[in-house]
Each structure stands twice: as C-alpha cells, then as structure tokens.
C-alpha cells in the first residue's frame, strides 16, 4: 500500500485530511503510540526536536488546540514562539503575508496556523520555508483534531473498518466535521451526518457520507456518536428555533444515550455546551471519552511535529524507515 503523504518528497506540510491516505493515517496513529508512552514517563520529555523552533500563528481564539500543541512541542524539547493577533503588528495593519515573511526571516522550522479563512495555511506554506501545520482554517479543515479522534476511536474499537459513526450538529460551520468525514471514511468506517437542514452545507456531492435529519433512527446502530458544538459565533442568523428545541431534537439526551449500544463511544471536540448538544449527565458517563480525546491530542501532535520536523524524512532520500 502506498503512503502518499509520508512518501512525498521535499518539505512536508499537514494541511488537510484529504492529503493523507489510509496508510499515512495508520502510520501516524502507530507512531502516536510511541509518543503516548513518553507522556507516561516520570520525566515526559525527549530531545527529539532539540534546536527546532516552532511559531504559533493563531488568528482565532483557541485554548485546547494551542495548549495541546504547546505541550507537545515542549515534550519534544522544541523552542516555541508565540504570536497572538491581539498584541501584534496585525493591529497596525500588517498583512498575513508580511507577518509570515517576518516570522520566517527569524529562522523557524515549523508554523502552526489557525485562521478564520479557509486555505490560509496553504497560502502560508507558499510564503514560508517552514513546515506548516493547519490547526483549523475557517470551515475547512482541522487535521490534527481528526487524527486524535481516529486515535481515540481506534484505541477503543480496535479497527474502524465497517464501524458506524454519526457526526451530529452544526455541520455547515464545522471544520471538525469536514476533517472527520474524510478521516473516518478513509479508515473504512461508515459516516452519517445528522443535522437539521439549516445546519447542513448546501452541496454535499462527493462527500463520502450519508445524511439524515433524524438522530433516533440510527442511534441503535452507532459505534461512535460524535457531537459538534453549536457554533453560535459563526452562525450569522437564526438557524434553529431555539437551543432548547435543538437539544430536544438533536441533543444527546439521557434517554438517547441509554439507547446507544454498550461499546459505543460518545465523542466531542470541545468546548462543549452542556445542555445543548449533550446532556450534562451524559458527558460524564464512562462511554464519553472527551477528556481522553484531549490527552490523546498531545500525543498525536507530538507524532505530527516529529514527522514534519524531526524524522529526517525531508532531508534524506531513504524511505525504509517508513516501510
């Protein structure tokens, strides 16, 4: 089987789940296990990225993704440069391109980008010599989130082939939904999107998914129930009559959670709104692996940073290490 992304020559970026094939994903998830072990040591730090500098370029708010990347970089002994829009020259009118070229001129090895515009990380990769990781661009992609979700699901379900995952909620505004629809289907799982028509993208042709407006009709069949946050800050107008009605129709209530099969996982990318997409009590059940997703996020991001910056795959024409 080919690994299209891992075997590609030259500088590597992680921009979209679309760039990875099943073999790439499996290799990243296997590598993640090595890094999860590092986190269990009494001194959870290895010198793999000593001397490498990574810049965070976050044009949107983020707590968990940023802290997760920061922790991952520190565990690999990389140096990190912080850039937050609030206290930077962006407020003085500097363009994204000039900002990237300025940071690049300081000599960095990696840039982790979060931006409100889809495609911004791709643009950054054109302007910089550093490896670029997409940490979320608009409604488009969030590949490390998908990888950590796949790692978490695979850890519990062993093999994702033939498993059924429902992604429930605000699909239109969700880069997590787009990344996971690709990620889970590439791993052989069946993906069903569940949302009211107002929260589904108008064009779904070509998506490897099924669509339903009725969560109750598929509940019994699910192996993973993946809930999305209602992104009130991105929704321009009223798309649901009320959050209470949304909860009644599409929320994972206690009654719905009872209907899930015993092995089924409840997942959420966070931050969650208890009482909206998930009942407060359901989020604390053993089936809910939401905090585990956060912990795995650090290990997955270590694996990605290592692959892009430390593995030497970009400098040596020798691919046996990823055979």
């Amino acid at each position: 089987m080919t690994a299209t992304w891992l075997r590609q020559r030259g500088p590597k970026h992680l921009l979209s789940m679309a760039d990875l094939d099943r073999n790439d994903i499996e290799q990243i998830l296997n590598l993640t296990e090595s890094f999860a072990e590092v986190g269990e040591r009494s001194i959870p730090r290895v010198p793999a990225l000593r001397g490498k500098t990574i810049a965070w370029l976050f044009y949107e708010d983020s707590t968990r993704t940023r802290l997760s990347f920061e922790t991952a970089a520190k565990r690999l002994s990389a140096d990190t440069m912080n850039f937050s829009v609030g206290s930077s020259s962006v407020n003085k009118g500097e363009s994204l391109r000039d900002t990237v070229e300025t940071i690049d001129a300081m000599g960095i090895d990696g840039i982790v980008v979060r931006h409100g515009a889809a495609g911004a990380p791709h643009q950054v990769s054109q302007w910089s010599g550093a490896a670029v990781i997409n940490a979320g661009d608009g409604w488009h992609q969030h590949p490390t989130q998908s990888l950590l979700d796949l790692y978490t699901a695979r850890h519990h379900l062993e093999d994702l082939e033939g498993k059924h995952i429902a992604i429930v909620g605000d699909i239109t505004h969700s880069r997590v939904a787009r990344s996971n629809a690709l990620g889970f289907s590439k791993m052989g799982a069946k993906v069903t999107l569940v949302a009211p028509p107002t929260l589904l993208p108008s064009a779904l042709e070509g998506w490897p998914v099924e669509v339903t407006h009725d969560l109750d009709e598929i509940l019994d069949d699910l192996d993973v129930c993946y809930l999305l946050r209602m992104q009130l800050e991105r929704q321009g107008q009223a798309v649901v009559p009320s959050l209470r009605e949304y909860h009644a129709e599409y929320g994972l209530t206690s009654a719905r959670a009872d209907r899930l099969s015993d092995h089924a996982l409840i997942m959420h990318p966070g931050p969650m709104n208890r009482g909206v997409e998930i009942a407060g009590e359901v989020a604390d059940r053993p089936a809910a692996v939401i905090t585990e997703q956060v912990a795995n996020g650090v290990s997955v991001r270590m694996a990605v940073l290592f692959l892009l910056l430390g593995s030497g795959l970009d400098v040596v024409d020798d691919q046996r290490a990823i055979a």
Binding site: A48, L49, S311, G312, V315, V316, Q319, A321, I322
Partner: peptide
C-alpha cells in the same frame, strides 16, 4: 527519541 543523529538520516 534520544538519538543524536536526527536530521542526518530517517529516524523512526
């Protein structure tokens, strides 16, 4: 992860 030849050859 503790090797000293990162960047000289593929390390996995």
């Amino acid at each position: 992860m503790h090797r000293d030849d990162f960047g000289l050859r593929p390390v996995m």
